[in-house]
Nucleic acid binder design. Structure first.
Lengths: 345, 345
DNA sequence: TTGAAAGCGCTAACAC
DNA sequence: GTGTTAGCGCTTTCAA
């Protein structure tokens, strides 16, 4: 079927070894022979069998990315942006990228990481959406399998990561709303087991406290990071007449869901309710009203994580190996105008 | 390093073959031996080396997906949705998914397909965004390499595909605007070399003609399918005072860019200008105003294409092998209310 | 400068 | 039931 070294060797009347060396630009093969070998390889349309080569070389030039997905789909623009970063970086280094999806903390996920770490068909892994105590991180660390994480985790372990400073980001966002005059601010929190979930929640509470503001327990609702989750959460926040004047969603996707639901309540985002998101996904600028949010260079993070990993599998410990990015506040219309000072009634 | 069959064989005092068979549940190995083998494998934490297995079996249980990207990134929600479909389907069949990105019609792309078709490290390929005369399709067809396309192409070749009926979709959309009373309709066309580009354009022109409506050449602007492209195109359409009352963007991403630009012109989408998109990406329902568009079950298409491909690499010609999906019209607010009949001045 | 031989880790035909 | 042998396609000592 496919053309192999053997075919070329036969046709050229030399040994397989020589062909191999000729094509690999070894310096110890006669220029003439090399010439001829190349010629024939060209004619026959030879392509090396990568599996064979990889088996022999014991490296795959492939990195793996196992996407944690809730539910049957992972159509999260955040990941799509992140994946773009990884994908382009792998391309630059002529690596392949193996993608698969598994529900977080599922047996399937566990197994996938096992397979990856020991099956020898990827050289390294990218771990995203770290959990507070992350079995994946522990597993890979234990096997000394190369990986780079987006997000911190398991604080007792040392491993390379890139992370955004969630606490700082949330501080910017909350302070923005406080400065606009808001005192009663609702928070759509991420699931608590996610590392960034805990940090964003902390950032929120911390900044509220720093401003001497109370947070009633009912103002804190957890959402599942999807649009639907955001809609439901904001529904809870609005439905019961809690009287919050602003809502912070802990990611843009939930914020987008929230916009929709708020409008269904007959309210206008940015006028009746101020709203903020987090991530600055590409579409955040195109919602209506455009979303005030915290910018993360998602694409860039993907690129960087991937570059670090490739360095790592090549035996170079990337420096620095712990990167913490400073987020920035992007003010758009969803956060509205400064509130009139409350009438003293 | 990694535990191999040999290690187990040594420890169990049997041959490598027996171990292999024991673990593979062959029926011709003594229950007792099998028991012991499994036991030891377990203890040692054995994981089969997939490369070796694949090299031997001459199949990789991996399918490839080469994403055509303009520019350095591919953060297109359409693809992210599509990828979700593929990803989940591969998972169901326990296949791996290899993803890479290349600029359309670039040498890199060409090479990637060559490698894939002959490098033996994927069993089949998914081709998307078919071009009218598609080098990729020709190449794969020529090599008899298994692939399934999303989109038709090269009409002289027979290959399995799933496609949406672009002409029918555009007909629905245009007719909707005509029925609302619009007569001067601008069109943001897709690049013409894309198969669906030609078809959507045809659908537009055809339906306009069927309604006896002129299309001034200036009402046709080509965009590059991105938000920015949509914004620029609509800018052209509005800036020169062409007086179109409605604009149809040939995909949602451009429509979203258009919304933005229209607002910058001080106009309101759905009131001053009617706007339509195409694809119904998940965010189309969340723009402001929500987007009237043509629905394609993107996730489902991804799933289906992938399922067909997996059937194909397993030697089953999928039936039917040509699927044409009927799109549906989703009316949201961006297309606005019926126009008042023009005053007869 | 070239070839023979071994081996990467696994599976499978064939013998015993 | 189990072992021997061969081989997937390639790279890489080691001799010639």
């Amino acid at each position: 079927m496919a053309v192999t070294l053997k075919d070329i060797a036969l046709k050229a009347g030399v040994s397989i070894t020589t062909v191999s060396r000729g094509l690999a630009d070894y310096d110890d093969v006669a220029a003439e022979t090399r010439q001829q070998i190349r010629q024939i390889a060209q004619e026959l349309g030879y392509r090396p069998n990568l599996l064979a080569r990889r088996l022999q070389k014991q490296r795959t030039d492939t990195i793996g990315f196992i996407l944690p997905t809730f539910g049957p789909r992972f159509s999260d623009p955040f990941f799509s942006e992140f994946l773009a970063g990884i994908g382009n970086e792998t391309a630059v280094h002529e690596y392949d990228l193996l993608v698969s999806t598994h529900a977080p903390d599922s047996p399937g996920e566990q197994q996938a990481y096992q397979r990856a770490a020991q099956g020898g068909w990827v050289d390294g892994l990218i771990v995203v959406r770290t959990r507070e105590d992350d079995a994946r991180v522990r597993l890979l660390h234990e096997h000394r399998f190369p990986f780079v994480a987006f997000g911190r985790s398991c604080c007792d372990l040392d491993f390379p990561y890139v992370d955004e400073d969630s606490v700082a980001g949330m501080r910017l966002l909350v302070q923005h709303f406080v400065d606009l005059g808001h005192r009663r601010i609702g928070f759509i929190a991420p699931p608590d087991n996610l590392m960034f979930g805990r940090l964003r929640r902390e950032g929120f509470l911390e900044t509220m406290a720093a401003n001497g503001l109370e947070v009633a327990p009912e103002w804190l609702v957890t959402g599942d990071l999807t649009q639907r989750g955001g809609a439901e959460a904001v529904g809870q926040l609005l439905g019961t007449g809690l009287g919050v004047t602003a809502v912070i969603a802990s990611n843009d996707l939930m914020a987008i869901g929230a916009i929709n639901r708020i409008q269904q309540h007959g309210l206008q985002v940015g006028r009746d309710v101020a709203l903020g998101g987090f991530d600055d996904i590409p579409l955040a600028a195109y919602t209506s009203p455009p979303l005030t949010t915290i910018h993360q260079p998602i694409y860039e993070i993907g690129r960087q994580v991937c570059a670090m990993l490739i360095a790592l599998v090549n035996g170079l410990m990337p420096t620095p190996s712990h990167i913490l990015l400073e987020p920035t506040l992007i003010i758009r219309e969803s956060s509205g105008q400064p509130l009139a000072p409350p009438t003293s009634s």
